[in-house]
Amino acid sequence: MKQEAAQHKLLLLALSSCFVIPVLLLFLQSIAGEWRFPHLLPSSFSYYGWESIFQDASLVSALWTTWSLTLTVILLNLLLAFPAAKQLAFSSFRGKEMIETVLFLPIFIPALALAMGLHLTLLRIGLASTFWGVVLIHMLPTLPYTIRIVRAGFERLGSQQESQAQTLGASQVHVFFHITLPQLLPSVRAAIFLVTVISLSQYALTTMIGGGEVVTLALLYFPFAESASTQVMAAFSILFALLPLTFLFLIEGLIRLCLPYRVSKI
């Protein structure tokens, strides 16, 4: 027994170091000065990387844009995915397979190809080069995943919980906030995280539809991928990775504040 526990600990340590060590290296890279091959640690340090990204005048506004964009995309995703996922999980209706296929097309067809066509339409209805145009285009690669995740959540939950609550006298709204949502939280978390990561990393779509009017962090960050300056790249990467985390904390906080039940185990 003791040996087994020790083995588990070792395995956990090994696994977590797989995640922690690269992040540490990245951080070290971002503050490294001279750091050449046989040396295990940088031989000098500099703030050059961090300095140059924070000097960028567009950073603050890009952060702000990215924030509001991602938040809007998340909320819209959840708003649309919940009813759709519920229908797909519990109802059978004519053309269900077709709708399922259409819903998952954006995963198979590159969103960029779809966006090309949408760009013209958005131009005509005056949404191109606007915040809402970009929000709309970000729905394309995110919504199918959200629906899929939430649908799996509904299927796991089953429809009987809701029926049970209804026969106990609960209204649809009450059932949603007290029964469904609390139990779908793991799915909601997963969806938020995925949507955030996908939305954050949309470079081509944002460029095309945003037309330079909507500048997100990805627009600042991606051109540096070709840069030889590893410090700048590393500093940007860390900043980029922090964003989904802040979202997760924010939403988690909101959930804890608003939902009446606090449970960790479901």
Partner: peptide
């Protein structure tokens, strides 16, 4: 200053031209 790849700019101009923007 807006950071955009030139290729993207040209491509977008092309679409805008198609749409008569």
């Amino acid at each position: 200053r807006v950071p955009l790849d030139t290729e993207e700019v040209v491509q977008r101009l092309y679409t805008e031209k198609q749409a008569g923007e």
